[in-house]
């Protein structure tokens, strides 16, 4: 087993009587794509929010390279190298694509006053990788929805992260747009660790090295794609309808 980059121990988050995430212990190995799937309301987004610091855990702990960051703020978690994307494209609507990735890249710079050439270069490369090099001058809100999702990934790429937390990067996309993102994810997967929350099972099974199934905030099953595909319990949880 490769070394665990990110790890949760008995992580829980309650909203009143509801345990949205209930005692989840998972370990995300370096260099792997680890998908977290489950029916609506299984607690996948809440789980990501706990990892990115946007929600505080009710109990349990989170470790990154052995360092505890259970109570760390989102900006500190990001600076440690944990980047996240959002379910609906969360870009700067009024800024151009170039400015969006520049801001993301600048978050790693020390300079306040003078623009840095390294920051600009990292931004340019991220924009090229996410396939929007030609659209640098276009305002984010003028992009198609699919392009906004590409920009979203370009932005977190520009922060030079060690691990990507991706929240349904394919949600709401048509077939061609989804294909473009899948290709982008496969490209990223070669060099990065990815935690992928996604509903599109074809995509999940084609990209992921490990799959965890969450149901009612708990880990139902965790393992390689073939193991998950054959699991009776997973089949039951999905009521046979869109069973993988």
């Amino acid at each position: 087993m490769p070394e665990a980059l990110l790890e949760t121990r008995d992580l829980s988050r309650r909203f009143g009587a509801l345990a949205a995430v209930d005692g989840v212990s998972l370990s995300f190995a370096e260099g792997r794509v680890h998908a977290v799937i489950g029916p609506n309301g299984a607690g996948k987004s809440t789980f990501l929010n706990l990892l990115s610091g946007e929600l505080r855990a009710t109990s349990g702990r989170v470790f990154f390279r052995g360092q505890e960051l259970t109570r760390a703020t989102p900006d500190r978690i990001s600076r440690l190298g944990i980047a996240r994307s959002y379910q609906s494209a969360n870009v700067f609507a009024e800024l151009s694509c170039g400015e969006c990735v520049w801001l993301a890249s600048h978050s790693r710079a020390r300079t306040l006053v003078f623009p840095s050439a390294r920051v600009a270069e990292r931004a340019r490369r991220a924009l090229a990788t996410c396939g929007l090099a030609e659209r640098a001058g276009v305002r984010a809100r003028q992009l198609s929805y699919g392009e906004q999702r590409q920009l979203e990934i370009g932005m977190i790429l520009a922060t030079d992260p060690q691990i990507f937390l991706l929240d349904e990067p394919l949600a709401g996309l048509g077939h061609d747009e989804a294909q473009r993102i899948v290709a982008l994810l496969q490209e990223l997967a070669r060099r990065h660790t990815i935690v992928l929350v996604e509903h599109d099972m074809d995509a999940v099974f084609s990209i992921a090295d490990t799959i965890t199934v969450l149901v009612d905030g708990r880990v139902l099953e965790s393992g390689a794609p073939d193991f998950i595909r054959q699991s009776e319990r997973v089949r039951e949880a999905y009521l046979g309808s869109d069973a993988p």
Binding site: D75, S78, M155, I156
Partner: peptide, 11 residues
């Protein structure tokens, strides 16, 4: 424009 996003980018 988007304070929450800026924070999650590390600012």
């Amino acid at each position: 424009g988007n304070e929450q996003r800026m924070r999650s980018l590390g600012f």
